[in-house]
């Protein structure tokens, strides 16, 4: 076994090491998508790029928002805003599991000392019309990643199949760094002149957003925005594929998909406010899925999607 890798000392070091590792394995290191999303999967670098025949390899951090998980910064593990690290490779390489285990070593998890398991966990995103098979990966009994082979996205079979890895960065980092409360985790180098903890960076925002998500966000406005976004997808995709100005074939899949992302997040917000009943909930999920499918259909008409 290779000599033990040095232990990282901060949250950001773990993030940087993952980026470096996957960059050296040929992934394009992308930046977070500039919209509010519930998970890294929503980034078009995963959803749209997993469609169609063209090979693809990317890794990126994605700030993710789950309004219902807000705890005003008090809970040691729960946050309404957190980071996911996402890796997608199409077609999924034969040694994907080994590559993944290499990434754990790169952040200081010694394979010989820990108990790593692949425990069945099938993934399904009803809002994206997507599903895949895979595992949650356990390290000493703790779930540290999701590992999925995409089978369908937006109602379309994935051919070839995209392999997707999602690391819950805060939880993984807390384990590697031996920290019990997320807010106490060193964010940057604890030896640096201005040492910052995760709490220094995020405690206040957790508080502010918890209050806003749970009590203040104007549900009528949110609902209106949801409906606007829903309509926008249809409007954008109803334009002819040939741009009358340039004469080019331009299907506006990405602008439409932005509106789909928006609708999905607004739905999460409405859900956090508790204004959606169980029966309505299914209906909302169905509405977002319809948007996701329309965007997936459109993407397959584009150059990147057609291959």
């Amino acid at each position: 076994m290779a000599s033990a890798v040095s232990k990282p000392t901060s949250f950001q070091e773990i993030l940087l090491r993952l980026q470096t590792y996957w960059a050296s394995r040929g992934c394009a290191i992308m930046q977070p998508y500039d919209m509010e999303v519930g998970a890294g999967t929503f980034h078009p670098a995963t959803t749209l790029r997993s469609l169609g025949p063209k090979p693809w390899a990317a890794a990126y951090v994605q700030p993710s928002r789950r309004p219902t998980d807000g705890r005003y910064g008090d809970n040691p593990n729960r946050l309404q805003h957190y980071y996911q690290f996402q890796v997608v490779i199409k077609p999924s390489p034969p040694d994907f599991q080994a590559l993944y285990l290499g990434s754990l070593e790169a952040i200081g998890i010694e394979m010989g000392l820990h108990d790593i398991r692949f425990v069945e966990d099938d993934w399904e995103s009803p809002t994206l019309g997507a599903w895949g098979l895979g595992w949650e990966v356990w390290c000493d009994g703790m779930e540290v990643s999701q590992f999925t082979y995409f089978q369908q996205v937006g109602g379309h079979d994935c051919r070839p199949v995209t392999g997707e890895l999602t690391y819950g960065l805060e939880r993984l980092a807390m384990y590697v760094l031996g920290v019990d409360h997320v807010m106490e985790m060193p964010f940057n180098d604890p030896q640096s002149g201005i040492a910052l903890s995760y709490g220094d960076v995020f405690r206040q925002t957790e508080e502010e957003y918890s209050r806003w998500n749970f009590d203040i966000a104007d549900t009528e406005v949110v609902l209106r925005h949801f409906e606007d976004a829903e309509r926008a997808v249809e409007t954008i995709l109803s334009h002819p594929q040939t741009d009358p100005k340039t004469g080019r074939h331009i299907v506006m899949a990405h602008p439409a998909y932005d509106q789909c992302i928006k609708a999905s997040h607004l739905f999460n917000l409405l859900d956090a406010r508790g204004v959606i009943s169980p029966t309505e909930r299914q209906a909302y999920i169905g509405r977002v899925r319809t948007l996701a499918k329309a965007c997936a259909d459109a993407y397959l008409e584009t150059e990147a999607g057609r291959g």
């Binding site: 820990h114 108990d115 000493d140 009994g141």
Partner: peptide, 25 residues
Amino acid sequence: ATVANIEAPDDGATILSGNRKVLAA
């Protein structure tokens, strides 16, 4: 009692402490 899939050089001390932490949460 937890069942690990590996014989670790520290007789499972690291694995056990990780599991205890998860259980506590």
